[in-house]
Design a binder for these strands. Structure first.
Length: 420
DNA sequence: TCTGGGGTCCTAGGACCC
DNA sequence: TCTGGGGTCCTAGGACCC
């Protein structure tokens, strides 16, 4: 039995926890670079503000409606997320963190002690008390059904934020009320196709013959259908699987047209990617770099090249990653464009000890690499950027825009809230 | 002027092997 | 008239998730 717990309007809720004056008011959070809307409070949703709307297009309207706007403050969200997950870990037998604001709990066996619904309310109360955040809880025998239950818990007030779908009769009543595009794993394209086949709600999807699904779609949707019927296809995951790729990419605060600036950005992203790689305790062989101009600029040529390079020996040393990344950049750089974004991707990972050394390898791993990287990571641990490689520059005129950033309430001493 | 940043999995098609 | 049968690996692209 699974419980899916997720925080209501996570990013905006994080902001209002520290701004009680904004509770009950329309609040939104915009993406990196103050690009588009990525989180809305219930009041903002009620005003009809759309998810993903470009901020610059609706700025005037937001002002008129007196909507509070915040730049993304990931340091804050990550910290509150961690607190939520720790709280869940105290109550539940097993917690699988699924995203920054969601976790699947394995609640098998709980019903022997107390009703699952009661358990759901205990979770809500505890998280609210510890973090000031409100969660929804959906309980069911499969992950997909737990998602459906969670949707219902949010959608209908009278549920009190907890829905238990362990009873199959209750599922038969609820599933027809759930539009097919709200089902986990059914996105825009698939829901459109399903609707053309006359499948409009979750019950109709659950009752579709498997061969029809396989004829028109892939095994992924077949699994979804089985899960909706109550047949578990997705296991609880005890350990987070190791990543296949690590990507660091950003849009720039303004368009870049000089090689120097691009070189700095690629160095900075390579450095950050290497840091993530070390955090995963992995080593990589392949480093790719991409950059692109705006796809929205109608009268400019769209240019989005990509190049990659390979290390002979797997490494997670920032110096190796930067060397290959800048080398790849040199192969794709072209003057005369206004670039809006770039990124560095790492792939082909190896764990410590399993790397295959090249028989004729003349590059031996760098001496003391491990120790040096450890020192750097430790220095940068609290508040990024204590030490860095020269390549990424000091000024960083291209750095992303975050003009409405809230304080680091829980991650920075100087920003601690003061009670007067 | 101005449109995020991460990830996953699956499939099809091509190159290549015997 | 007519050209096997079975694989693997890689890549690009498409779908989805948050």
């Amino acid at each position: 039995m699974f419980a899916l717990v997720d925080v209501n309007s996570f990013y905006t809720s994080c902001e209002t926890v520290f701004r009680p004056d904004l509770q009950g008011k329309p609040v939104v959070v915009v993406s990196n670079n103050d690009g588009c809307i990525i989180s809305r409070s219930a009041e903002a949703k009620a005003l009809g503000i759309k998810m993903g709307a470009p901020y610059f297009k609706i700025k005037a309207e937001l002002q008129r409606q007196q909507v509070a706007v915040f730049s993304s403050n990931y340091a804050l969200y990550a910290d509150l997320s961690h607190r939520v997950m720790m709280t869940l870990a105290e109550i539940a037998p097993a917690v699988e963190v699924y995203s920054i604001d969601e976790a699947f709990l394995n609640v098998s066996g709980v019903s022997r002690c107390l009703s699952l619904e009661t358990f759901g309310h205990q979770i809500r109360n505890r998280v609210l008390k510890h973090t000031g955040l409100t969660v929804g809880v959906g309980i069911a025998p499969t992950k997909t059904l737990a998602k459906v239950a969670n949707y219902a818990a949010k959608r209908w007030r009278k549920t009190g934020g907890v829905v238990d779908l362990s009873d199959s009769e209750r599922r038969r009543k609820l599933l027809p009320l759930v539009p097919v595009h709200e089902v986990w794993g059914v996105g825009r394209r698939i829901s459109k196709k399903l609707e053309m086949l006359g499948i409009g709600n979750a019950l109709q999807l659950a009752e579709s013959p498997t061969w029809i699904i396989r004829k028109h779609f892939s095994v992924v949707l077949e699994r979804t259908v089985r899960e909706l019927r109550g047949e578990a296809c997705l296991e609880p995951e005890e350990f987070a699987p190791t990543k296949q790729h690590i990507l660091c990419s950003r849009s720039f605060g303004h368009r870049i047209s000089t090689y120097e600036e691009m070189h700095q950005a690629v160095c900075a992203y390579a450095e950050r990617a290497a840091e993530k790689l070390r955090k995963e305790k992995q080593f990589c062989c392949v480093i790719s770099v991409f950059m692109r101009t705006s796809s929205h600029a109608a009268n400019e040529v769209f240019y989005d090249p990509q190049a990659s390079g390979r290390l002979a020996v797997p490494s997670n040393d920032t110096r190796d990653i930067i060397r290959v990344a800048t080398n790849a950049l040199d192969r794709i750089w072209k003057d005369g464009h206004r670039y809006m974004k770039a990124g560095v991707m790492l792939s082909d990972f190896y764990s410590l000890g399993v790397a295959q050394l090249n028989l004729f390898d003349e590059y031996q791993p760098r001496a003391n690499s491990n120790e040096l990287m450890q020192v750097i990571d430790k220095l940068n641990q609290s508040g990024r950027g204590t030490v860095w490689f020269a390549g990424q520059g000091i000024q960083q005129s291209w750095a992303m825009k975050r003009e409405m950033l809230s304080p680091g309430y829980t991650t920075r001493y100087s920003d601690l809230p003061v009670v007067k």
